[in-house]
């Protein structure tokens, strides 16, 4: 039982992590937030389905389509909602992304309809039972893909020139600019990358639950935001840890306490973390500079 819950928690955590990393990248660099991330996740998943129309029966094509579609939408988000407002007002991008979120949902609704679609063919990657827990190949693939991709991202941030530019930009936007870093390009890369991961998550989510629908990104993106906050929003490593923690906590709550309140727990954690560490990792002291 416990092992099964932990496994379920890992799967859910993997899906959260693919979303929460995007939130953290954006908040980390711009100190601004997007509310369209869940819909990029959803639209990415649908573009994965579109890729299947061209390459039928290729799971890899679906994955690639989802990543590419979401990455393009991420670039559009940055271009439409964030680039015009680099120097404020700081809540303007949030408002534009609310609009973008509605647009994406409406577009997918128009094109694909409101009904829930399954993944078009059966994904049978085998199924094993080890000491009482059943694991399917798809579950392993979900966790494995997420971990591999996230590890790659971590290495890129820690060890590449691009990662250095990203860290510098997050640490101090103007200083990075003065040092000759093309901050606009760094921001664009963060959006493309974060959104690509969200698209990957979207497709895995749809395939795993067998459900693609226009509102599929709404609740999970709020949970991923909670996870990113739990890990210290703006910190990519924190976002990943927070995502797996939240996934596991939720499944434990659902398994041992009450399935009804698993979502409440997620948002209660979100608010508590914000209150206990008011500004997350930005950590402003009690006294303001004058």
């Amino acid at each position: 039982m416990l092992e099964q819950q932990l496994l379920n928690g890992m799967i859910l955590g993997s899906l959260y992590a693919l979303l929460s990393v995007g939130f953290s990248l954006i908040v980390g660099i711009l100190k601004m937030i997007t509310f369209a991330h869940g819909d990029v996740f959803m639209a990415g998943a649908f573009s994965g389905l579109v890729a299947l129309l061209v390459f039928p029966h290729s799971f890899l094509a679906a994955l690639a389509g989802a990543v590419a579609g979401a990455a393009i939408l991420g670039a559009i988000t940055e271009w439409a909602a964030f680039r015009p407002f680099r120097s404020g007002p700081e809540m303007a991008p949030a408002l534009v992304t609310i609009g973008f979120s509605i647009v994406l949902q409406a577009l997918v609704l128009l094109v694909a309809g409101a009904d829930t679609k399954p993944f078009p063919f059966e994904l049978d990657f085998g199924r094993w039972t080890v000491s009482g827990i059943t694991v399917s190949g798809l579950e392993l693939a979900t966790i494995g893909t997420a971990l591999a991709v996230l590890a790659g991202l971590g290495l890129a941030i820690a060890g590449t020139r691009w990662g250095l530019a990203l860290r510098a930009t997050a640490a101090h936007y103007q200083a990075a600019q003065i040092m000759g870093i093309n901050t606009d390009r760094v921001v664009l890369a963060a959006f493309v990358l974060g959104s690509g991961l969200a698209g990957l998550g979207g497709l895995l989510f749809g395939a795993y639950y067998g459900a693609f629908y226009p509102l599929m990104g709404v609740v999970i993106s709020m949970k991923a935001l909670a996870a990113a906050t739990l890990g210290g929003i703006g910190n990519v490593g924190g976002a990943i840890i927070g995502a797996y923690l939240l996934g596991i906590i939720e499944n434990l709550v659902a398994g041992y306490l009450s399935a009804n309140y698993r979502d409440v727990i997620a948002f209660a954690i979100l608010i508590l973390v914000l209150l206990i560490r008011p500004a997350g990792i930005l950590g402003r002291g009690e006294e303001e500079k004058v």
């Binding site: 937030i33 809540m91 949030a94 709020m222 935001l225 914000l274």
Partner: peptide, 10 residues
């Protein structure tokens, strides 16, 4: 700012 926005959404 965004932290208040996130908390109130929650």
């Amino acid at each position: 700012t965004i932290f208040l926005a996130i908390a109130t959404l929650g």
